[in-house]
Each structure stands twice: as C-alpha cells, then as structure tokens.
Simulated scan of single mutants.
Amino acid sequence: MIDTNTRLPAPPRDLLGGAGLFLDFDGTLVELQDRPDLVHPDAELIRLLARVGHALDGRLAIVTGRASERIVSMFGGTPFVIGGSHGVEFRWPDGRTAGPELPAGLDDVMAEMRAFAAGHEGVIVETKPYGAGLHYRMAPGAEAEAHALAERLAAAHGLHLQPGKMMVELRAGAGDKGAAIERLMGEPPFAGSRPVFLGDDVTDEDGFRAVEALGGAGILIGPERETHARYRLDDVTAVRQWLARATEAYL
C-alpha cells in the first residue's frame, strides 16, 4: 500500500509491452455523470480501444461495475472481453458468457430501492442483471440512509454489498475486479502476459492488488490517495492520451 505522502509517477510509455490490459470504465475511460444512463462512449474512444486491442493481440478487457450487456450495447458488440458487475459475470468476443444464478430476492430488493428513491429526490436506482445500485450523486444528503437500506437488504437476502463513488450496490456473488483479472489471466489470450489495470475507484483496489501479486502494475486515475497502484494519471483525458502513445510502438 502506497500512502498519500508518496507521489506516484506517471506510467512509462513502454509499460504495455507484453502486457494484458484491464480497464475500468466509468471515471477511467469516460467521465462520471450524475446519471449512469447518460454515459456513452464517443467515437474517439471506440476507435482508440480498437487500436489498443489490435496492438495487444486481443489482450484487452473492460472490468467494470456495469452489467456486461450494457457495455455491449454501448459499443455495438463485444470487441473485447468484458468482466461486468464487478467481475461476477463475463462476456467474450466469441459469444461465450458466464455468470452466477440470479438472486431469488432481487425483485423484492428492487421494489424497496425504488420506494426509497421515490421518497428521496435525486436518488436513482440502476437495474443490473445480478443486482441493483442506488446512486445518490444528486442527493448527497441521502448517503447514510442509502447505505443503511443497502446493509439491511444485503443481510436479509444474502447479497454482496459493494460501495462505490456516491453509490452503493447489491449483487449476487462475492466476486470482485481482482478475482475477475485473476480468472482472465489464467486463459487465452491473457495467459503468460503481464497484467496492467487502470481504475479510479476504491472498488478498483482489488484489481490493483491482483495485478501486483501477478507481477504487473496498477494505474490509479485521479487524485493521490492510499493505493496499491504503482502509477497514476490525472484524469480521463490523460488516460486516453497515454493509451494512444503507449500502443503506437506495437501497431
């Protein structure tokens, strides 16, 4: 763990040589928005990821809290591996999918979350195939109540609770982004490569720990904080610029 008194360097340009690249989505490739449904990849990002995937011979995955089907719909297909719902479900470009069984109490959870959102202006419920999220970015005063509700529902229905940036999520399965990276590193095309993971949120620390243990490196996006990442980039713009430069030599 690197503390806040240590300034992390920018990642070197040659870091992606022989690497398997794992990317968070919101806050890393696209700017965070008040409403998650307002986020869409622009044409520049779609072209950039196509170049990155080609440069790395397909060793590219998006590992995100979003449902994999949402990433597929935004990109118009599955041009890379997707570890969705914080790494508990997967989609591969060849059409394969994997995921846990749907939680039995999910309908009841959704009903209580929607009732809570109806009584708290600005709170949004995000539906996911294996769970649901409460977003309170537009209602920060609802944070304590949202977390209390999520904790109660998680205990009542045996769901995994996952806090995030101005949101809290309940889902089936106890996987995380680190476990998703470990799984993908055990199979083609990632096996034998050195993992690199970019992320901005506290939920990405599991990924940073995983790549560190596998001999790779994490890259924190955003302000300095305690982290298991080795490098840091300022923001989404810096991520895109670095990815473009870092893959030029391999095209």
Rank of each mutant, 00 (worst) to 15 (best):
G173Q: 08
A213L: 01
E226T: 08
P41R: 04
G141I: 11
M166G: 14
A155L: 15
F80M: 06
G173I: 10
T4N: 06
M138Q: 13
E145K: 11
H147V: 15
E143V: 11
G53C: 14
P36N: 04
V236C: 13
A146G: 14
E151D: 14
G87P: 02
G222Q: 08
E226G: 04
T64W: 05
G53A: 13
S68W: 11
R114H: 12
L56I: 10
A154L: 11
P79K: 05
R114E: 13
L198Q: 00
H86R: 01
G99A: 15
L184A: 06
G20Q: 03
I181L: 06
D108T: 15
I46V: 15
V211Y: 02
L15R: 09
R114C: 06
H160D: 11
L32T: 09
M1C: 09
L170E: 00
D107W: 13
W92A: 09
D3C: 09
T127H: 10
M185E: 00
P140A: 10
R59N: 10
G84H: 02
V30A: 07
A174Q: 11
A104F: 12
G122V: 06
T28F: 01
E121T: 15
V39N: 04
E126Y: 06
R51D: 11
T127A: 13
A150P: 03
P11G: 09
I221Y: 02
I221P: 00
I219K: 00
P103D: 03
T78F: 09
L198K: 07
T97Y: 07
G65S: 07
R194A: 14
G83A: 14
Y250I: 13
E101S: 15
L184C: 07
T203G: 02
M74L: 15
D235V: 08
L153R: 05
H160N: 13
L220E: 02
G77A: 11
V72R: 13
A213R: 03
L38I: 02
E145Y: 11
F90N: 05
R230Y: 03
A50E: 14
D14G: 08
E151Q: 15
E145N: 13
H40S: 14
V81L: 09
F116Y: 12
G173S: 10
A67M: 07
V72A: 12
R51V: 07
L32P: 08
L8Y: 01
P9T: 06
T64H: 05
D26S: 11
D3N: 10
Y136A: 01
E205M: 06
A19L: 02
D37Y: 03
Y231T: 06
D42W: 09
G175W: 00
A213S: 08
G53D: 11
L21A: 00
D204V: 01
H135N: 10
Y130E: 03
D24M: 03
D14R: 14
L8D: 00
E226F: 02
